[in-house]
């Protein structure tokens, strides 16, 4: 809540300064965003000199996510999901278009945006030799929390996620992937993000850990007033958790709608996904 209040205060100040008529409370706004990368590969196997090649990762994508929504992004490997998440999380600069979080541009207002967001990725990015508490302490200080506050809140959150004090003081490398992912979510909760970016958080987890993480995602929205952007390959997960879904194919948004509307023509979400991406492949061919 604290971070959300900061965001709203910032927006109010912005609107007073610019005499804008209303507050834009879209948690996330992506407009005409494109990103390409340059790779160097030989054109033929016998060719020694590499040839510069442009790879389009995200192609003119536009969407908005209202506050409090769980917005899912579906797409095959290499469809641009992670690139999109990395642009939103300020780790990449878009080539074209703009991205704003609660009205703040991710490039020109980078530090304020960073304060409002957090990201949980497919690989739990931790110092594996350090304990969950030491990792949480590091995160807390980075996000402006004091040691006492971080310690008390960290233990409380970990306890709620089923990680006791003894485990919280042992190195992360001794923990299972599922447990590590829970700590990643605890770390995100600790900093009270108003926009949470979840990049395939359940990939590779066993069914029980997956269920636990999914329940935590729902809990975050209900109890922490967080807006969530979730990328996943799991269609059941997307169907269960997300209010709306966007399907990405070769960097382009080919559908944005609620799971129910997407399934309107019949079949499961997986059938819809296969149909949509095949149609695109045919069109491209």
């Amino acid at each position: 809540m604290r971070t959300l209040n900061v965001a709203v205060a910032l927006l109010e100040r912005e609107t007073q300064n610019t005499s804008a008529p209303s507050l834009d409370l879209k948690a996330l706004s992506v407009r005409g965003m494109s990103k390409h990368f340059v790779s160097y590969k030989p054109r033929f196997p016998w060719q020694k000199r590499a040839v510069k090649k442009h790879v389009v990762a995200v192609d003119d994508v536009t969407f908005e996510v209202p506050r409090g929504e769980i917005f899912g992004i579906l797409g095959a490997n290499g469809s641009g999901k992670s690139t999109l998440i990395r642009v939103i999380s300020t780790l990449l600069l878009a080539d074209e278009g703009s991205v704003s979080v609660f009205g703040l541009d991710v490039v020109s207002r980078e530090l304020q945006v960073k304060q409002m967001i957090n990201r949980v990725s497919v690989d739990a990015a931790f110092f594996k030799k350090l304990s969950p508490m030491e990792n949480l302490m590091y995160a807390g200080r980075l996000y402006g929390l004091g040691a006492t506050q971080t310690h008390a809140r960290g233990l409380q959150i970990l306890d709620r996620l089923g990680i006791g004090t003894r485990v919280a003081l042992n190195p992360m490398e001794d923990m299972s992937r599922g447990m590590q992912q829970k700590v990643a979510i605890a770390r995100a909760l600790l900093t009270s993000p108003v926009l949470l970016l979840l990049d395939e958080p359940t990939t590779g987890l066993d069914p029980r850990s997956k269920k636990d993480v999914q329940n935590m995602v729902l809990n975050m929205r209900q109890q922490h007033d967080a807006t969530i952007v979730l990328t996943t390959h799991d269609m059941d997960e997307a169907d269960r958790l997300c209010d709306r879904l966007m399907v990405l194919d070769r960097g382009r948004a080919i559908a944005i709608d609620t799971p129910a509307n997407l399934k309107h023509g019949g079949g499961s979400l997986e059938d819809v996904f296969m149909r949509l991406t095949t149609e695109e492949e045919d069109a491209a061919a």
Partner: peptide, 14 residues
Amino acid sequence: WEGTIEYTLMAPVP
């Protein structure tokens, strides 16, 4: 090496 580069660089730290 630790795999934390993205986490550290997306933190709100000058």
